[in-house]
Design a protein around this nucleic acid. Structure first.
Lengths: 261, 261
DNA sequence: AAGTGGTCTAGACCACTCC
DNA sequence: GAGTGGTCTAGACCACTTA
């Protein structure tokens, strides 16, 4: 790509104009992955701005993944990312509120106990540590949209023992009171069986999405939660551009389907 | 938060030290959502650096979502994001290659035709436009890990008509030859039935994840693809921090389970 | 009106890396 | 050694928002 091929539109800050000019040249196919972008000096002369301004534009493009920068070798268009899908699964009560749906959290079971061997494995604490175990259902317009099975490390969230789950869903309380620093998720499709099918109010064997989430605060496990979503009533949608960071909430036009919303 | 409470560690560029100092203060709970961060002027005095350096640190934190900046009101800690799960589903051949698994793409059917009413609806083109329809299977170590049903707008990807699908998977070819500017995805759990169960080599009724992906280049639809993943053999895993942009590939420790990998 | 952040300049020195 | 990007300075002017 030659510096003289780039044109700016005069709208907004000059560094954003330069970012746009380079981005559109790449997306139009004028520069393919591996092609060189003009050096900061060339762009500085081309647009008659200071080097700091050029640097700001190009280093932001590098942070967004459109280009790769190397000393001496210069800046090149980044290799195309593998085609990918990104999904976000949000707090269901927040989604419902945004969709204007009637929402209710229904506590089903709760117990405070020393961690069993299975608890310890799932949550990542030592056996015998105090944990809270909770099961609840999220309903939206009367229909079950999510079943939640949760273990909480009471050492990391001592205040939870005094919270009334029928008033504040435990997920909401944790979010407000215990900042997490790391999370791990897995998602899979399963055939709902036995009690899970009953609690989800679907037929035995019906497909369900299961999301497992573990969160930590520093080294300390905070919570382990298994979220069951009936396959038929819940669809996750994401819409986004290939460059420019994570999907913003504004990019996500319809995050999930709710019954009769 | 007071500027004097912040300390830097002397390692690396000063703007990164300042970013770290503020980030760890927030994650340690010393500043809660809505709390004010010292102004650029205060930080400039505190660390004895120029305002540009402070600005770089804080504006990057704002871009990452840790803080929110407002003129006059100053910079405050951002409201906690809803607890969320982010998943990325990557090109399956790239995943397999990285996992060191034996990978094969198996074309099952292919046709070039004018778009039917259903094609037109799914792909977003007018009825009668030339499209390519493809079905294929991705195998990893002999096991079906993904079934792919794809429609391609030949107006957007004319070269595809001459590609041998048994040599290059069409998804791979598109990625290399047609840059996309926008994508939309949906994910859901279904019970596999009839031909889909047969092609996935699973039992009728078994749960499967279905990912639908539409991509555009500008206003023009490029491809519509439905990816079927057997629920039992594929699990998606993501691990990441609440701040700092999208999950990087390095954050994702095990992106999916492959048989015998 | 005053405080704050947003942008920009015209330099500077340094580190890395290819030739 | 020369080219490149990474960082940093000490100013400046402007735009926006709240008090």
């Amino acid at each position: 790509m030659e510096a003289r091929e780039l044109t700016v539109d005069g709208r907004g800050p000059i560094y954003l104009q330069i970012k746009r000019a380079i981005t559109s040249a790449v997306l139009a196919g004028q520069a393919r992955p591996g092609d060189r972008i003009p050096s900061e000096h060339e762009l500085m002369v081309r647009f008659d701005v200071s080097r700091m301004t050029i640097h700001k534009a190009i280093s932001q493009l590098a942070a967004e993944g459109l280009v790769v920068r190397n000393r001496k070798a210069g800046t090149v268009v980044a290799p195309r990312r593998p085609e990918r899908a990104v999904f976000e699964i949000w707090d269901v009560s927040a989604e419902a509120a945004q969709a204007g749906a009637r929402y209710r959290f229904e506590p089903l079971a709760q117990a405070q106990r020393p961690a069993t061997a299975e608890d310890a494995l799932q949550l990542g604490v030592s056996e015998g540590q105090p944990v809270m175990w909770l099961v609840g259902r999220h309903r939206c317009n009367g229909v079950v949209v999510q079943l939640e099975e949760r273990l909480v490390n009471l050492k990391a969230a001592p205040g939870l023992a005094n919270v009334d789950a029928s008033e504040i869903p435990p997920g909401r309380w944790l979010l407000d009171h215990v900042p997490w620093t790391e999370a791990e998720h897995t998602i899979r499709a399963v055939n709902a069986s036995g009690q899970h099918a009953v609690q989800l109010e679907i037929a035995e064997g019906d497909a369900a999405l299961v999301v497992e989430r573990r969160t930590w605060r520093g080294q300390r496990p905070v919570t382990y939660v298994r979220l069951w979503c009936p396959g038929v009533t819940r669809t996750l949608v994401g819409r986004f551009a290939p460059f420019g960071g994570p999907p913003q909430s504004s990019d996500i036009e319809a995050r999930s389907g709710f019954p009769k919303c």
